[in-house]
Structures are given as C-alpha cells and as structure tokens.
C-alpha cells in the first residue's frame, strides 16, 4: 500500500534526523512537510541553533546528491549555476555545471550575497530549470533548496527580495531548546559530532514515492475555500502593504497534504492547515513601514487572522 509506505519513509527519515537534532520535533515535522510537499524551506534563526545541522541531517538521511553553497557578498551567479569554459583542444565551449545541479542544495546564510546572485536561484526554485547562455537546462528530478539566514545581524546583508521569499514554501525558526536538552546535546558531542555517524536511510525511489503520495492526499472543497479565505484575509488586513499571493494558497494546500500524510491520514483536516498557516504565509507578506515600526509583525497578523476566520468543523 503506497500510502503507508510513504508514511513509513517519512517516519524513517524523521527518526534518523532525530538522532542528531534533539528537542526539535516540531521543526523536523515542518521540514519533512516542506520536503515531502516538494517546496523549499527557509530557516531563519540566530547563529548556533542548529539550522545547518538540521539541513545537513536531512541531506545525509536521504541517499541523494547534496551540495552546499556558502553565500558571501562576492559570490556570483555563475558560482551557483555553472560556467561555459572554452576548450582550446576541441575549439568549443564546455559547460561546467555549478553546484545547483544537485538534489539537495543547502544555501547557507543566503542573505549575505548580492540580490543579483540571490535571484540566480529564482528560476531554479520555481521551475526546476536554469537558463544559461540562452540554453535551457533541466535540474534534477528532486530539487530541494534549504536556505538559512540570520535575522539579527544586518550589516553586510541583503534582505531577500519579496519574489525570492515567495519561492520558499515554508519559513520557520528553530528556537532554543530546553536546558535539559541542551545538556544532552553537550554530552552527545563529547565523542564526536553525531552527524559523522549519520547514514542515508532512504533512496531516490523512496523520495519520489513520498512526493507522489502527498499529491494523493485528499482535500475537500470546503477546506480549499478555507485556505483561500485565510490567504485572502491577508490582502485586506490593516498595516499590510502586500498580502500573500495565490502561490501561498497553493503552498499551504501542498504542505497541509504532506502534514496529513505524516500524520498517517488520507485527507487534510482543518488542524493541519492551521498548524502550518503561519510558516507558509507570514514570510510572503510585506508590512507597512509604519505598522512595522509600531511593533506589528506579519506572524502576529496571520495568527490574528487564524483566530478570526471561522474554521470549518
């Protein structure tokens, strides 16, 4: 039964990651939902909370190509996409693939590079393809970007443009773990980093099954309407310059479906939608500067909308 098989794949990966990431069950759940739904994930948190470790743990748990780009201010688009080099022997240009031609791409500290470089990812993330030297090149079948950024340190950074933000299905932060968990993390790393012992537990085939099964999860018309109501409400909200796009509705549906699958449910229930609504919607909205300076956040706006819009029951 493919559904239970997919669910099995999910729990295997989750268990594998949990070997490394302590006390972050909720973040792992969200990451898995994003991965299974075929979206991309943006992790935003202060340094040292395990963003990169989480990303690497996922990459190591699945037997897929993995590459990592450390974003710096002098990084160029060609450093990501690849470059054509003239071969004097053959008297022709040879294309050298960049790190983007992989299955899982970890874009570390993505806001440190210039907007020009950041936008090199745009086409890749939305359409799984890149145009280089006027030539269209398809990316791998499974292409998953997991980016990290630090919201506190702003000097020498370029905030991601709205179009780029919209490409990410989910954005969430990890947060600090409890003191007990922090102690156990210290004990674990006494011998060596647990990442070193981590091996893949699922393969490409499994990932494809997982993703195709997510699409099979049923969602009723009424809940689709609920998603549209939630996203639509962001466009009418006070203090919001730009509400969430229809792409947000689409992402919310897909991530909810993935979450339902993780919960071993063949249909989406309202709880799933509510659980991920903030992570899916909030980062796509642009606040009015005045509202932002008065302490209003997009997260609070979405939470407010969730409380207000009647949930189907």
């Amino acid at each position: 039964m493919p559904h239970s098989q997919a669910r099995e794949i999910c729990s295997r990966v989750t268990a594998n990651i949990e070997n490394v990431m302590r006390g972050q069950a909720k973040s792992i759940r969200l990451l898995m939902a994003g991965f299974a739904s075929g979206g991309h994930v943006l992790l935003e948190d202060v340094p040292g909370t395990g963003k990169t470790t989480l990303a690497k743990a996922l990459a190591l748990s699945v037997d897929l190509d993995f590459s990592r780009i450390q974003f710096t201010p002098d990084l160029l688009p060609s450093d990501i996409l690849g470059v054509s080099v003239f071969d004097q022997k053959e008297n022709a240009f040879n294309f050298h693939k960049g790190p983007i031609f992989t299955n899982i791409l970890l874009a570390d500290e993505i806001n440190r590079s210039s907007p020009r470089t950041q936008s090199a990812l745009l086409e890749a993330m939305a359409e799984s393809q890149v145009s280089i030297d006027g030539q269209l090149r398809r990316l791998e079948n499974v292409f998953f970007v997991i980016a990290t950024q630090n919201p506190v340190e702003t000097s020498g950074t370029y905030p991601l443009p709205e179009a780029q933000m919209d490409r990410f299905s989910l954005q969430f932060s990890l947060g600090y773990v409890s003191p007990e968990v922090e102690v156990s993390i210290m004990s674990d790393q006494g011998a060596g980093h647990p990442l070193e012992q981590l091996g893949p537990c699922v393969g490409m085939e499994d990932v494809l099954t997982l993703r195709s099964q997510v699409k099979q999860v049923a969602i009723s018309e009424e809940l689709k309407r609920y998603i549209v109501d939630l996203v639509g409400a962001t466009r009418r909200e006070e203090g919001i310059l730009m509400g969430a796009s229809p792409r947000a509705s689409l992402a919310l549906m897909k991530v909810s479906q993935a979450l339902a699958l993780i919960d071993n449910q063949s249909f989406v229930s309202p709880d799933h939608i509510q659980e991920v609504a903030v992570s899916v919607i909030a980062h796509r909205m642009v606040m009015d500067p005045q509202a932002r300076f008065s302490g209003q956040t997009t997260k609070a706006v979405v939470e407010n909308i969730l409380k207000r819009v009647p949930v189907p029951a």
Partner: peptide, 20 residues
C-alpha cells in the same frame, strides 16, 4: 455534541479547530 456543549457555556471560539 457541539450544540450541547455550547449550551453549557463551553462555546468554541471562531478560529478554534475542534481538537484545540
């Protein structure tokens, strides 16, 4: 059941899902 609980004063908030 929902009706009965509402009458008892345990009313559900507008954006609250059933499990919450």
């Amino acid at each position: 059941i929902e009706e009965m609980l509402n009458a008892q004063g345990y009313s559900r908030r507008q954006g609250e899902n059933l499990n919450q």
